[in-house]
Design a protein around this nucleic acid. Structure first.
Lengths: 125, 125
DNA sequence: GGTTAATATGCCTTGACAGGTATATACGCA
DNA sequence: TGCGTATATACCTGTCAAGGCATATTAACC
């Protein structure tokens, strides 16, 4: 066994693109190492190593199925990230509003003379 | 001038703890380099370098105030992170529910032989 | 123009991490 | 027991980023 790595923050874990890919893949359902390997076209040791990191960080857990190991997501670390992100949400939604007001002012109201009624709804869907 | 770094993903940017600290600090209001330096007790070049990375990644912008530069947050990259995280939100809130049901089942109904009535309400309430 | 304050940048060193390849371990089965 | 499959781990190596320190830049003010 190795010496235990120092509890890396969830942020460092998801900084790695391949790990994000693995996590997204596990979103559909639990997967074996081999399935991940094939779908993401990564060498098997690479997959195993990333899974190890993900497991140590609590992003995934595994169960044994014969020679296979099935990996599935665990929610906690995602919440940690989300919690941090939450502080900024207030800030950036304020900016969305400002942007929308700005766009509304810019908005070409279908080339007619009518400055037309306040378009309010249905920006971006 | 240096050669431009290759557009690192927002995830790599926020992987660095000092950068997260700077971002959180800027949440209250815009700050000069010196103010950040003092509040976070970092050497000035360290602060400047992190701010450079943050600016290149679009997390902050700056304006000039005499010899000072005032840095403030920009929302876009946060949304990028949030968008990625969103896929998992459905998943982890499902788990909150599952956990709660689980705990309800586990709940020691005050040690009696009775398998006793299903306690339902007031978990974490 | 010289001096001081505020900030940016360059250079260097160091450590961490990801990938590659080989190998070990564990399981199932004949 | 021996073999094939599935997965984990060890070792090596290249790369890259962060920090320390010195220095360049820019502005204000005398």
């Amino acid at each position: 066994m190795e010496y235990t790595r120092g509890m890396e923050s969830a942020f460092e874990i998801i900084a790695e693109p391949n790990r994000r890919a693995i996590l997204s893949l596990l979103l559909s359902s639990e997967q074996s190492v081999g399935e991940i390997e094939r779908q993401l076209r990564m060498p098997q040791p690479t997959v195993s190593k990333h899974l190890r990191v993900l497991r140590d960080a609590g992003f995934v857990e595994s169960t044994v199925d014969a020679q296979r190991r099935l990996y599935r997501l665990k929610p906690e670390p995602f919440r940690e990230v989300d919690t941090w992100l939450a502080q900024f949400r207030r800030f950036w939604s304020a900016h969305v509003d400002a942007l929308e007001r700005h766009l509304d002012r810019m908005d070409p109201p279908t080339p007619k003379k009518s400055t037309s009624s306040k378009k309010k709804a249905s920006r971006r869907g």
